[in-house]
Design a protein around this nucleic acid. Structure first.
Lengths: 191, 191
DNA sequence: CGTGGAGTTGAATACGATCAACACCGGTGG
DNA sequence: CCACCGGTGTTGATCGTATTCAACTCCACG
């Protein structure tokens, strides 16, 4: 079974896994269920065993802007808030019925205390996250909506199929109508 | 003197600092000097003691898009490439005559091997970097050019004064003309 | 069946890009 | 000292891309 224990290679050290397991709680959530709301003061990380979550921000007009999707095997958390004990900026909810592991933030600190050699692993994950965000910023600054959509298809072909198009539009930073038009053009030209 | 040795609290451990110092080289660079070009295979990190650097990407049409500024006390590096030994995506050059410390990437690995627990603040730095990028992505998706500019002024008042406006425009993802217009409006209305 | 959300299409609009002209320095060399 | 020049920033006209608003279709689901 896919689990954060695999992700962080904890099965190699069962006694450690046991001591950490109290900070990890498995839950099933229904499609649409909200795990975290903007302003929440207790912020967790979520590891997705099955299903799909998303995080998003709400602007002044109440419009959603999807920050990331998290299908199976992904972790999702509000890194802008969680590690700094700030109230959440992002909302997190379920796009499908999902099975998740809720990881309390303080667990990470504890984990690093016990197993310092795991620092490298945490750093590697963070570096990859920064790399993804770096690319996304540059795409948002320099590429047209169509280019960003084509890149999204290439990068996340699995996600394209399973989430509604209006959410992909939201992730790309455009309206559903604009994405629909782009898809229309692509279908006409490229077939 | 401002140095990466302060930044990473290495003076507390002089013998370690000594063993690492061979991987750190101090240089002075002139305004306009290029430290890293797109495609470079050897990618370093740069710590700014004095002056100001920037990193930017070039799109297909050769247009610059500034990814970040690095005034005194900042580190700048191509995190999308450096830790993964990929050719550089970003260019890095000097906006002012600057004094910098060049840090070889493998130094971090070495450091991590020797003293993993000392990397707690490495993780903290990365978390902050992710937080900054998270906010920037959301701003690019949800805020108008004017809102992004106002936010930039609030967040980086020191940078506003010292870099040319066309570069701030580039950072914001708009043209110099658009920024000029926005500033004109703001001067007229708010004064 | 109906009903509501998702997606498409089209018309009108807004925002920022592009292009061009010009003012304003800050150097540089005569 | 001044004339010249290139780079920076401003302003205005025009264009293009994406937004907004509205109408319609199509399913999925009650």
């Amino acid at each position: 079974m896919l689990s954060i224990f695999d992700e962080f290679k904890l099965y190699e050290q069962p006694e450690l896994a046991k001591s950490l397991s109290e900070g990890i709680q498995t839950r099933t959530v229904r499609k649409g269920q909200v795990l975290q709301q903007k302003g929440d003061t207790i912020v967790n990380s979520y590891f997705v065993r099955k299903g799909c979550l998303r995080s998003y921000s709400l602007d002044q007009k109440g419009k959603e802007h999807i920050f990331m999707f998290a299908p199976e095997g992904w972790m999702i958390t509000d890194i802008g808030s969680a590690p700094f004990n700030q109230p959440a900026d992002l909302c997190i909810d379920a796009l499908e019925d999902s099975e998740i592991e809720v990881v309390q933030m303080r667990l990470f600190e504890k984990f690093l205390d016990i197993r310092p050699e795991a620092f490298g692993f945490g750093i590697e994950k963070l570096l990859k996250r920064v790399a993804v965000l770096q690319k996304r910023v540059i795409m948002l600054m320099s590429a047209s909506a169509k280019e960003r959509y084509e890149d999204f298809i290439k990068t996340y072909p699995n996600i394209v199929q399973r989430v509604p198009q209006k959410m992909i539009a939201s992730y790309l930073g455009i309206t559903p109508e604009a994405l629909s038009t782009i898809r229309g053009e692509m279908a006409r030209n490229g077939l």
